[in-house]
């Protein structure tokens, strides 16, 4: 009989194996108590007090991050409203919403870390596990998948392989179905992508160049033929960005 802790470790290992290949259908393992999820019937650790608002004296916060969060706090009538922008700022600094990052935000915002945890786990763009520093979100929602996004996602994932610099994710509709299939690379929309674009896409990211400049959404004119009374060249403001 294994301890609950061992069960959790075993479970996590098995989940990793499954996550690596979702096509493999494995029978669902169940624990002796019938649950698929370990630990749900364990009581909370009552020996441990809940984390309090971190003490500024013992929680070092990078000066830039503190200034940015305080800037966000000043914009809202209620300081909790700054949770999303503050967590996003901390994620930019730390790479993900690590316990340390959450601690720092909690310290500046004067809220508990648990509160910020509850927020961070809700939103797709806030990472609660360590990830690669370049995010590649491939849209696999309906319009993009009609245009071949699933193959594109597989190709990007395979091409990125084990490279820990990349955070390749299949994402829900990114609101750019006109350039389907598309991807958002560190916030920059590119499309329509073909499988042949994938190597250059990753090379551009690795080299720190603008990603597939000719396929960036910012350069695209509106599709409606009646919209413009004359032909306009590219936006100067957007052409270079």
């Amino acid at each position: 009989m294994s301890t609950p802790e061992e069960e959790i470790v075993e479970f996590a290992e098995e989940m990793e194996v499954r996550a690596a290949d979702t096509d493999v259908r494995m029978p669902v393992t169940r624990f002796a108590h019938g649950s698929r999820v370990p630990g749900w019937d364990l009581p909370a650790d009552l020996e441990k007090d809940p984390a309090e608002i971190p003490d500024p004296a013992t929680t070092p916060v990078p000066e830039d991050l503190r200034a940015e969060i305080e800037g966000h706090l000043a914009k809202y009538p209620d300081r909790r409203s700054a949770a999303l922008p503050a967590l996003a700022a901390a994620q930019r600094v730390h790479g993900w919403c690590s316990p340390e990052a959450i601690e720092q935000v909690a310290c500046v915002m004067r809220v508990t870390p648990a509160y910020l945890d509850s927020v961070a786990t809700f939103y797709d763009m806030l990472e609660t596990n360590p990830v690669g520093r370049h995010s590649v979100y491939v849209c696999t929602n309906i319009s993009c998948s009609l245009c071949g996004a699933d193959e594109l996602y597989e190709a990007v994932r395979n091409a990125a392989g084990e490279d820990s610099d990349f955070n390749v994710r299949a994402f829900e509709c990114l609101g750019a179905c006109d350039i389907a299939p598309m991807a958002s690379v560190d916030g920059i929309y590119v499309g329509p992508l073909t499988l042949a674009d994938v190597p250059q896409l990753l090379d551009d990211i690795r080299a720190g160049r603008p990603v597939l400049p000719e396929k960036q959404l910012a350069r695209r004119l509106v599709a409606d033929p009646h919209a413009n009374s004359q032909e306009f060249p590219l936006h100067p403001a957007e052409g270079g960005s």
Binding site: V222, A227, S229, F232, P233, H235
Partner: peptide
């Protein structure tokens, strides 16, 4: 809404 929407600037 789309009047000359692609005008630069």
């Amino acid at each position: 809404l789309f009047t000359d929407i692609d005008e630069p600037g």
